[in-house]
Each structure stands twice: as structure tokens, then as C-alpha cells.
């Protein structure tokens, strides 16, 4: 059985907000390592990989590996019934036909209990090879969100060019064109806002802005984001949390 108690229930609410528009149903794979999820969007263009490590919960118990098939819209509706400061406990027995959720307020004088019906999901699990990327950009997650939203005004796609001087996000469309360049600035006072680039080789890649904007729904989970790129392989957008991560992969656009 699974029992996982999360002191900061808001984290789970934010995680759901970050994935529910990209994927509708997914298996939460529970093991002694923690709770993981991997799912592709319906159009097979993007993939979400989530890990909530066991040490982020107190206590965390999972005697046997379990796959909890969840409709994410339903789960996010139930999670809206939890207060932001509530402690959330997830429980499922080995038959895994329901997921029990308990929300306790911080004064411990209001306890709410919900049960969510689970479903059987045939998941298409993808093997993601370990990749050494040609360019890795670490930057403020809020800045990344702003750039994607701003450039969406101009186009469906963004061209990302990375050189050792900086990273340039450019978009061209019917109404005109726009570009935002962030210079590498590791010495700024505010570490959280620094743009850092690790570069083996310059890269220039095109991606769908609709998906990138969707990925930025994870912004409340981390102040930093990393973009890992190589020519002609999927982009990795990673938000690291205290005990886990949310990774998005996006297939590049190619040719004309």
C-alpha cells in the first residue's frame, strides 16, 4: 500500500496545475523511491516526466510498486478543495481502485477526506536516453515565462539561438518580428536572475511556443529553469524542486 504525507500540500496543487493541460490521464508510479509520472501529450509532441522523491514526504511508505491511473482534471478538481496550507496525505491500497486524499489544516481542527476513482491506463512508456547536450541555459523561470508569452503575440514558433555570449529567442510572424536576447551574466548580484550558459557548440533550434507556454505553468514550482538543447533532438525544459523535478521534452520543428 501507499501512504504519502506532504507537509506543503500546495506543492501538489502546483504540480497538477503544471501538467493537467498537457496530459489528461496518467499513471502515478509509486515505488519506494517516490512517486513518478511519465506521459506524452495526445499529439506525441511533448512529454512530461515528474518525480516526487520519497524524502519530500513525511512519512512515505510504499511496500509494493503501484501504478495509480488518474484522470488529472478530476484530481486537480479535488485538490482545489484543499487549502494552500493544508497537509495532504495520499493513500491507496494494493488493489488501487481508489486514491484517498486527506487534507488537514495547520490548526489540525479541520480534516477533509476525499476518494478519487482510479482507472486502468495503458501507458506508452518512452525510453529517454542519457544525452550530453550541446547547450544548457540556466535562467530565471519567470523570465522564461515572460519571453514565451511575449513572443507568442508574434508567432507560433520561436527560434532559440545559443552562443557563448547569450541566448536569443526570436519569433517572426505576419505582424512583424521580435527577439529577446539574454546575455550570460553569472556575476549579477541576484543569483536567481542570472543567465548561465554551458556550451559545447552553438545551437539554433525551432520550437512550438504553444507547448513552451504550457510548460511555463510550472513556474511557481521553481525560481530557475534549465533549457538543454542539441541539434535535432528534443529540448529538455527542467524545473528542479526541493525533492524532485518536473521535466518537459519537446520535439523540435524542422525544415520549411
Amino acid at each position: 500500500m501507499l501512504e504519502a504525507r506532504l507537509q506543503t500540500g500546495a506543492l501538489l496543487k502546483k504540480v497538477l496545475e503544471a501538467i493537467k493541460e498537457l496530459i489528461t490521464d496518467a499513471n502515478f508510479d509509486c515505488s519506494d523511491n517516490g512517486i513518478a509520472l511519465q506521459a506524452m501529450d495526445n499529439s506525441h509532441v511533448a512529454l512530461v516526466a515528474l518525480l516526487l522523491r520519497h524524502d519530500g514526504f513525511e512519512p512515505y511508505r510504499c511496500d509494493r510498486s503501484l501504478a495509480l491511473g488518474v484522470n488529472l482534471v478530476s484530481l486537480s478538481k479535488v485538490l482545489r478543495c484543499a487549502g494552500n496550507d493544508d497537509i495532504i496525505t495520499l493513500k491507496a491500497d494494493d488493489t488501487a481502485d481508489v486514491l484517498s486524499l486527506t487534507f488537514e489544516n495547520t490548526d489540525n481542527d479541520r480534516i477533509s477526506e476525499y476518494e478519487l476513482k482510479l482507472m486502468d491506463i495503458d501507458s506508452e512508456h518512452l525510453g529517454i536516453p542519457d544525452t550530453t547536450y550541446e547547450a544548457v541555459v540556466q535562467m530565471s523561470s519567470a523570465e522564461f515565462a515572460r519571453i514565451c508569452k511575449d513572443l507568442q503575440v508574434l508567432s507560433d514558433s520561436v527560434q532559440i539561438d545559443v552562443t557563448k555570449e547569450g541566448v536569443k529567442f526570436g519569433a517572426k510572424g505576419e505582424l512583424g518580428s521580435g527577439a529577446v536576447t539574454l546575455k550570460q551574466n553569472g556575476n549579477v548580484d541576484k543569483e536567481e536572475e542570472a543567465t548561465l550558459i554551458e556550451l559545447q557548440q552553438n545551437v539554433s533550434l525551432n520550437f512550438s511556443l504553444k507547448y513552451l507556454v504550457n510548460f511555463t505553468k510550472a513556474t511557481p514550482l521553481a525560481s530557475r529553469v534549465s533549457l538543454s538543447m542539441s541539434s535535432e533532438v528534443p529540448l529538455l525544459v527542467e524545473y528542479k524542486m526541493e525533492a524532485g523535478y518536473i521535466r518537459y521534452y519537446l520535439a523540435p520543428k524542422i525544415g520549411e
Binding site: V45, L126, G127, S208, A251, K253, E256
Partner: peptide, 14 residues
């Protein structure tokens, strides 16, 4: 307009 690739082209199904 560039063409959108499918992720399946890059990652093998397990």
C-alpha cells in the same frame, strides 16, 4: 513554417 516533429522519432517506446 517549420514542420513539427513527433517525439516518437527520438525516444523509443518501452
Amino acid at each position: 513554417t517549420p514542420i513539427q516533429n513527433d517525439l516518437g522519432e527520438f525516444f523509443a517506446m518501452i
